[in-house]
């Protein structure tokens, strides 16, 4: 068991009906003090995975380890180390923000002053006697984050925590999570169906689709993948002739009759190719460098 992973699943599979596999051999590896973005389109299996990790769904196949310990064998001990927000906020609508936190403080037996601390952290200290049912969605999400943080967990599991938040709310949430990760070395597993929403936040990424983990690695590795797919697009009056004038090492096999696709190259090299083509009587209609953005990589991986 690799204890550098704060959270790890091994061959986690799940099916709701006999012929309907929701998850297939999921091997999540969430490193210590990382912010792990768990990405996938709606219905990919993200929530099912997170619910299995938290023991909210009975596990059928595979293993779950938190901090190197089996979740099944140490459920209570490990739940002390996890804070979670799954799907929509879980709040007692007739209670105030303070009372909602007090409900969980009784279980975790953390000092009462922690309630004020987490309320201040999510900027809900001044809600007074206002009931949670009267809160805006943004306030409810923030209070749910406060509940998840109440007992100073080592891992935070958040399932689409920005759902329903306005852009400002998303920005605030992102800043708060970054702060917690940096200041308290909190490991954060956050799911989302929008890469753009969390790419500025995460250090690691796992991409899931139709119950299969398609990519797992650091954000840097995903960016490398992006670099690998960058290319130069070239359109001329005679692409066939142009291809014979360009060093074959630059030409990508995906080129077609209308456009030549070249490997990513320095600007000087692009200028030199352009000059050479013009000197050989070939007019250049179009020449530009094209990078595949992360969203496109995500879409390609998930087949959308």
């Amino acid at each position: 068991m690799n204890t550098t992973f704060q959270l790890e699943t091994r061959n986690l599979s799940h099916r709701f009906a006999a012929n309907e596999e929701i998850l297939s051999q999921i091997n999540l590896q969430v490193p210590n003090a990382s912010i792990y973005g768990f990405l996938g389109p709606n219905g990919a299996g993200k929530t099912t995975t997170l619910k299995l990790i938290l023991g909210l769904i009975a596990k059928q196949q595979g293993e779950i380890f938190i901090g190197g310990k089996s979740f099944n064998a140490h459920r209570i001990e490990l739940l002390h180390q996890i804070g979670s927000l799954i799907e929509t906020p879980s709040l007692y609508s007739q209670l105030t923000a303070y009372e909602n936190l007090a409900v969980w403080q009784k279980i975790y037996q953390c000092p009462k002053k922690r309630i004020d601390e987490v309320l201040a952290l999510v900027r809900l200290s001044d809600t007074g006697k206002k009931k949670a049912g009267q809160f805006s969605l943004g306030m409810k999400q923030r209070l749910s984050i406060a509940i998840a943080l109440l007992h100073n967990p080592r891992i935070l599991i958040l399932d689409e925590p920005t759902n329903g938040l306005d852009p400002n709310g998303i920005l605030e949430m992102r800043e708060l999570l970054k702060q917690l990760n940096q200041e308290k070395q909190l490991t954060i597993l956050i799911s989302s169906h929008l890469l753009a929403e969390i790419e500025k936040l995460v250090t690691h990424i796992g991409i899931i689709n139709k119950g299969n983990l398609l990519f797992q690695g650091t954000l840097h590795e995903l960016l490398q993948k992006q670099e690998q797919t960058a290319h130069v697009v070239l359109a001329t009056t005679n692409n066939q002739h142009a291809a014979t004038l360009i060093d074959p090492k630059w030409i990508l096999p995906t080129s077609d009759e209308k456009k030549l696709l070249l490997r990513e190259m320095p600007h000087e090299e692009i200028a030199a190719i352009n000059k050479k083509l013009v000197q050989n009587g070939i007019d250049v209609y179009e020449i530009h460098s094209e990078k595949t953005d992360l969203e496109t990589i995500f879409m390609n991986l998930t087949g959308n």
Binding site: L54, G55, I76, L79, S84, E87, P89, S90, L91, I107
Partner: peptide
């Protein structure tokens, strides 16, 4: 009604 079973069942008890 408050969607809180999931929170209750992820507490260490």
């Amino acid at each position: 009604r408050n969607n809180t079973w999931k929170q209750t069942h992820t507490t260490p008890q």
